[in-house]
């Protein structure tokens, strides 16, 4: 059974895709795990990082994107889920010097449109009281189809609350919520936490002990700034927090240019390699993987 790990926040620009890719590299290279990334964001950032521009265009031409996967299976296509994946993605080498076991279901610019079309098609065929819930459940089923072939499935969620993003949040065994230490992000973390735990407000959320929550927050782009420390502490009043924090560092910012030649993960992440290792080890411990 795969462990489903979502990376989500309703706010954009908090580092969801970079963290999803970082974890995918770490689990596949250091952990030797069979990792799949599902790019559920129509910005397609993780696809660009893992395939490069040309690779992503080729994936679209081959109809190997998440939008194709959802649309085809809705139409009853017999194409196997595995056929939509691209294997051996990324530009790092595994411990053996070869490509690590990292696969990708590439993102699509059309994902939001496809979800709208599928909702209309779904609603026209059924008479359920809550069409949205029904369609979301169908998306959950599609996400779980990769359950047996991978050890870790990483769901890189869009900032908006699409059917696919909600399905990812409900499917995930654990959700990592990256945030920037600023006031707007504080509220964004509160809101996504309520959605993940399906609670109406912070008082209801507080009834769930921090150690029993399905999500954990990750401070990202952290600088050595006392004001940011207070905001991280304020955020932690209501949410579980990883001990690992990711600083604003060149090594992280520079790691996401796709290179045509594979290189060791240490070389790719440069000055940020210890940050990646700390994050991987902590998530790995929490996930029991």
């Amino acid at each position: 059974m795969a462990f489903f790990l979502a990376v989500a926040n309703r706010k954009g620009g908090v580092g969801k895709s970079t963290i999803a890719v970082m974890l995918a590299h770490a689990f596949s290279v250091w952990g030797g795990k069979r990792v799949l990334i599902l790019d559920l964001d129509s910005q397609c950032n993780s696809s660009m990082i893992l395939l490069g521009g040309e690779g992503w265009v080729a994936a679209r031409a081959a109809r190997k994107t998440v939008a194709d996967y959802f649309a085809d299976l809705f139409e009853g296509s017999s194409r196997a889920p595995r056929d939509y994946l691209i294997e051996g993605v990324g530009d790092v080498t595994g411990q053996d010097g070869k490509a690590p076991p990292l696969s990708l279901l590439p993102g699509s610019l059309l994902l939001d449109d496809v979800q709208g079309d599928l909702f209309l098609a779904y609603a026209s065929k059924r008479a359920e009281p809550d069409m949205g819930k029904g369609l979301r459940g169908w998306f959950e089923t599609l996400l779980r189809r990769f359950d047996t072939e991978f050890d870790i499935v990483i769901l890189d969620c869009a900032p908006g609350l699409s059917f696919a993003a909600l399905a990812a949040l409900y499917t995930a065994n654990m959700v990592v919520v990256p945030f920037r230490p600023d006031y707007v992000s504080l509220h964004a973390v509160d809101r996504v936490a309520l959605i993940i735990e399906q609670r109406a407000n912070l008082d209801e959320l507080a009834e769930i002990p921090l150690e029993s929550r399905r999500y954990v927050c990750l401070a990202n782009y952290v600088r050595a700034n006392p004001r940011e420390r207070l905001l991280i502490e304020e955020t932690s009043l209501a949410h579980p927090m990883l001990a690992t924090e990711l600083p604003q560092r060149d090594g992280i910012a520079n790691a996401f240019d796709w290179f045509p030649q594979r290189r060791p993960i240490e070389e790719k992440y440069g000055s940020a390699i210890e940050d990646v290792r700390n994050l991987y080890e902590e998530i790995s411990r929490i996930a029991g993987r």
């Binding site: 050595a224 700034n225 600083p247 560092r249 060149d250 090594g251 000055s271 210890e274």
Partner: peptide, 15 residues
């Protein structure tokens, strides 16, 4: 890498 990390952290502290 270590020098880069030290310099980055020093610059951030100074800022």
């Amino acid at each position: 890498q270590s020098i880069d990390n030290v310099l980055t952290e020093s610059a951030q502290r100074a800022a």
